[in-house]
Design a protein around this nucleic acid. Structure first.
Length: 183
DNA sequence: AGTTGGATGGTCT
DNA sequence: GACCATCCAACTG
């Protein structure tokens, strides 16, 4: 498990630094909803909106441990890899992708922000879903079967462009024991 | 083990 | 027109 916190207009690493735009609209909305965006033209990233409407902030879900539906997650990873191609992959290309993903340990299926989107088969239509609604197709639920996780903090990744203090703020939180963390 | 570059397109100045 | 809240394969040493 691995997450990163992003703040409002003052946080130079946050999408909210531009103020309200079409892309970051969800960050300014109700807490507990999903904020999704596309990065590098191909990956979908999932965030949880965390502050009341009007106060933009979100937590990026950078990595999770897939504990159920592992084969579904593998199939979603394959589908995402295939969909990311401009030209349709040949049968051989597809076989290579399938073999690579079949060989992945389950712990690595969603071990990165883009991989979380791929493993869950997320697309932009999931923007704004209420993650706290038990009827939502995408939601947060307590896991009573799991003990407390250990938590460590570090600087956020991939935000050097923001400069200090934002680039070095220790707002990445992860379970150092977990194998399902980006690297 | 560490570094580099390609894929790929929306978003913002 | 430049820049990404990324991932992976293909290099170097």
């Amino acid at each position: 498990m691995e997450v990163e916190a992003y703040g409002g207009t003052e946080d130079r690493a946050s999408h909210a630094r531009f103020g309200l735009t079409d892309r970051n609209r969800e960050m300014f909305g109700e807490p507990g909803r999903a904020y999704l965006y596309r990065v590098y033209g191909m990956h979908i990233c999932l965030n949880v909106v965390t502050e009341p409407a009007g106060s933009p902030a979100a937590v990026l879900i950078r990595a999770v441990e897939v504990r159920e539906g592992i084969e579904i997650a593998r199939a979603s990873r394959v589908a995402a890899a295939v969909a990311g191609r401009r030209v349709p992959p040949t049968g051989e290309d597809r076989a290579i992708i399938e073999r690579r993903i079949a060989a992945l340990p389950a712990a690595r299926l969603a071990a990165g922000p883009g991989l979380v989107g791929a493993a869950f088969g997320l697309e932009l239509w999931a923007r704004g879903l209420d993650l706290c609604d038990s009827a939502s197709p995408l939601r947060l639920e307590p896991d009573s079967a799991r003990g407390p996780a250990s938590v460590e903090a570090s600087a956020r990744l991939g935000v050097a462009f923001a400069g200090d203090p934002w680039a070095s703020a220790p707002w990445r939180f992860f379970d150092p024991v977990s194998a399902s963390v980006s690297r």
